[in-house]
Nucleic acid binder design. Structure first.
Ligand SMILES: [Mn+2]
Ligand SMILES: [Mn+2]
Ligand SMILES: [Mn+2]
Ligand SMILES: [Mn+2]
Lengths: 220, 220
DNA sequence: GAATCTATTTTGAGTAGTCAAAATAAATCC
DNA sequence: GGATTTATTTTGACTACTCAAAATAGATTC
């Protein structure tokens, strides 16, 4: 059995590599896992020995097929657990990430399957993050963000990629949940902000950085 | 935070000490945890340094108030998780022990409270094991077993103390679930077995050893 | 009151993961 | 092309377990 440390390394490599393909630098991986770079190097070499990753010294890491399989299974657990915590236990969507970070390592495949069925086989979690299928398929569709989308067109909010509790709380307060309908009233590159008009509720201003972590698609 | 190893040691000490009071021998503890005796000694000394237990060299261990508090909280998580797995996810009651053994270390107090509410604040788990309250109170009532109870009197089945998957499967197959009504038709000390008559279903024979792991109380 | 048996403890060593700090390689600057 | 900056790797050390095997303390037997 893979330890939870191994599972975390693989999941972070997957998330940092745009789906598993690109090389991930030791620095980025170390930062993402909150360890020092030397630790990441040491662990990645062990992961390479066990066949979970390919390590190109001085260049980065990449998942092997087996590593990717395991990483996707951890990600599936993480996101199904988040969904359960929000939809069944009615927990705050800003709090569930920390919980799922632990539970993803403690849940068996058997429990996961039953959770999946109980939830009606959802394909996204409460944040709009795609849930990998049992077979390891994951929706990798590329969406526009509020920083890059068309102005003055109706949009459906798809996903919030900034997982920080503060941002999620802010988003919820302003009705910015996946499924909500909005449009960008104005985008001012010079000032570095956009004005957003939700279908319901008052207009609000967002920095381009914040806008960039909200994914949308054309509505209707 | 206590590691899951520490949590397991404390929980096993609690379970082996009839509620936390009596001294538990290193041998019994080591067997219960599936480690060699030297390992148990080493860990118990560390646990004593951190104030979770009192170690009487050559005699045994006992929980401190703090150790007991922590052990009860782990036990509460274990049993509420088992209850959730059986009543919500409809899992086999013989399989949930292994699952809960992991999940008990990954569940936060916040999630636990919500699980408890979802389940309607149960006071026993699917096996009839008492669930400690949030405050650490636990029903320590002493029950008769099918090996010691009155013969030919109506009985209500209270609890199955043998947690092995085989025995639980056997019990379920024969309708021996907590709440079931039975009576002991005959007890033959010489042959070492009893004949049990469930309210519904055919009579069946049980060894005294097996009978001793089924707790009952007078029905009606 | 020794000799023996049994449970416990100690010792030495190994695995998994981590950090601090020094060494090294690669990229960038002049 | 040589010096400097930056990222990565290596080294040495530490924590939290764990086991095998030797040492020891008690209890039991003769
Ligand atoms: Mn995690
Ligand atoms: Mn999510
Ligand atoms: Mn456990
Ligand atoms: Mn139980």
């Amino acid at each position: 059995m893979a330890t939870s440390t191994v599972e975390n390394y693989l999941k972070h490599i997957l998330l940092l590599s745009e789906g598993g393909g690109e090389l991930v630098s030791m620095g980025a991986l170390a930062t993402s896992l909150s360890v020092v770079p030397g630790t990441a190097t040491t662990m990645v070499k062990a992961l390479a020995d066990s066949g979970h990753v390919e390590h190109r010294p001085r260049q980065g890491v990449r998942l092997t097929a087996e590593g990717r399989r395991l990483a996707l299974s951890v990600l599936r657990k993480h996101r199904l657990v988040e969904t359960f915590l929000v939809t069944v236990l009615k927990m705050d969507w800003a709090a569930v990430h920390a919980e799922a970070e632990q539970l993803e390592h403690a849940i068996s495949d058997e429990v996961l399957d039953r959770l999946d069925a109980l939830l009606g086989h959802p394909d996204t979690d409460p944040h709009g993050d795609p849930i990998p299928s049992r077979q390891g398929k994951i929706n990798s569709q590329v969406y526009a963000t509020l920083a890059t989308c068309a102005v003055a067109k109706p949009l459906r909010l798809v996903r919030i990629t900034d997982q920080s509790a503060e941002f999620l709380q802010f988003a919820e307060q302003n009705g910015l949940l996946p499924g909500a309908t909005v449009h960008v009233a104005d985008r001012n590159l010079a000032a570095g902000l956009i004005t957003l008009k939700p279908a319901k509720g008052p207009a609000l201003a967002l920095s381009l950085a914040a806008a960039g972590s909200i994914l949308v698609q054309p509505a209707r």
